[in-house]
């Protein structure tokens, strides 16, 4: 080894170093952690699995869909948040939507193209749907009553409600003296100035987490507000007193750790299991 040129010796040492460190840090370390973890925190280490009737039905910390085969909400169950992981809550393709805060203009569907919904329209549509499901108003600021983003493209001579495909009626008829038209799918409105219109919607009845996708796409929780919004519907569907359902919601609410960490959250799978079990 001493007779090798310096640069080669260095690389040989490097190669050996990588090998030795891989052995320690890449094999011994994970094995040791796994051994101790499995011994001390067996449940956690294996995914906090939940069984029902002897059958694993999921992980208490991974969210699930409570929908039927067509993707419609099953009313007996509390519903999870919208998810961008695969077709929803798919741990094999976890994802967030990654749509931006000013993503407000849709690409309307045409014959050849299925189009693209902006984040604003997604929010508006979800709000409308949730409102209908829970029997409350789904109205939100910047949303049209038909559940798309209330956004105008303003041109010198006219304005276009760019997310409302013709023949829909634009959410306003006149904008600053300009006539407002519905949007023709396939037409390029890029040259117009984008103006989202807040409208006069009151504070929305549907909570924010009900209309947004989580970061992981596997969020096991909904907000307390969203759970309480769903409670009457679930109580009605199951023929349970509302108070009992609300009590269960309370029992499955995780408050802030130490009183200040995070936000209070309701574990949907555990809540639904408790409902099924009780």
């Amino acid at each position: 080894m001493e007779r090798l040129p310096g640069w080669l010796r260095q690389h040989l040492a490097a190669l050996r170093a990588v090998a030795v460190l891989t052995l320690i840090l890449g094999a011994l370390y994970p094995l040791a952690v796994t051994g101790v973890a499995q011994a001390l925190f067996n449940g956690n280490a294996n995914g906090s699995l939940i069984e029902k009737d002897g059958r694993t039905v999921g992980s208490s910390i991974i969210g699930q869909l409570f929908t039927d085969g067509d993707g419609n909400a099953i009313p007996r169950y509390f519903q999870s948040r919208p998810s961008a992981a695969g077709d929803g809550y798919d741990p094999l393709s976890t994802s967030a939507s990654n749509l931006g805060p000013e993503d407000v203009v849709d690409t309307l569907a045409t014959d050849g193209d299925e189009g693209r919904q902006s984040l604003l329209t997604l929010v508006c549509a979800r709000s409308k749907a949730a409102g209908e499901l829970e029997g409350v108003s789904g109205a939100r600021p910047y949303c049209t009553s038909d559940g798309v983003g209330a956004v105008l493209k303003v041109f010198p001579d006219r304005a276009v409600s760019v997310n409302q495909a013709c023949p829909a009626a634009p959410f306003v008829t006149v904008y600053q003296g300009l006539p407002v038209q519905c949007a023709t799918p396939g037409e390029d409105y890029a040259a117009g100035r984008t103006v989202p219109v807040r409208g006069d919607a009151p504070a929305p009845a549907v909570p924010g987490d009900a209309v947004t996708a989580s970061g992981s796409g596997l969020d096991p929780h909904v907000s307390v507000a969203y759970a309480r919004l769903q409670a009457p519907r679930v109580a009605k569907e199951r023929g349970l007193p509302l108070d009992q359902v609300l009590t269960l919601v309370g029992e499955h609410t995780t408050n802030r750790a130490l009183g200040f960490m995070g936000q209070p959250a309701v574990n949907v799978l555990e809540l639904n299991l408790a409902l099924d079990g009780g």
Partner: peptide, 21 residues
């Protein structure tokens, strides 16, 4: 615009963490 419509900047965030954390 979108956070205003939502009422909070919750897109892409987990309920348990909330916007602040």
């Amino acid at each position: 615009t979108v956070p205003q419509a939502i009422g909070a900047a919750m897109e892409g965030k987990e309920v348990r963490f909330g916007a602040s954390n």
